[in-house]
């Protein structure tokens, strides 16, 4: 039952990533693209956690935690650059 749920969820997350990549390519303004990148990080974390359940290993959680931290710092750096034209003043 869990294997079937993982297969369906994997397909749904891949579809979500495709939709996010569409917004990343189309997005009329830079802020739309930053938002799409932020969402891609969230979806990648979901895929990593799903892989952890599928392979039965707890090793992937460090990777997911790192992705969460780096994704947040990336989003803030991009927004800072859009707001001030500089990341570290």
């Amino acid at each position: 039952m869990i294997a079937a749920a993982i297969a369906i969820a994997g397909g749904a997350i891949c579809l979500a990533i495709a939709l996010t990549l569409y917004r990343l390519a189309v997005g009329p303004d830079a802020t739309d693209r930053v938002l799409a990148l932020d969402t891609l990080v969230i979806e990648t974390i979901a895929l990593i956690v799903l892989g952890g359940i599928a392979y039965g290993t707890a090793m992937y959680f460090e990777a997911a935690l790192l992705f969460a931290m780096v994704g947040f710092v990336t989003t803030v750096a991009f927004c800072k650059f859009l707001l001030r034209g500089n990341v570290i003043e």
Partner: peptide, 13 residues
Amino acid sequence: GAFFLLVGALGLA
């Protein structure tokens, strides 16, 4: 979880 991820991406697109 997968359903809400899909809903979020659909809203974004």
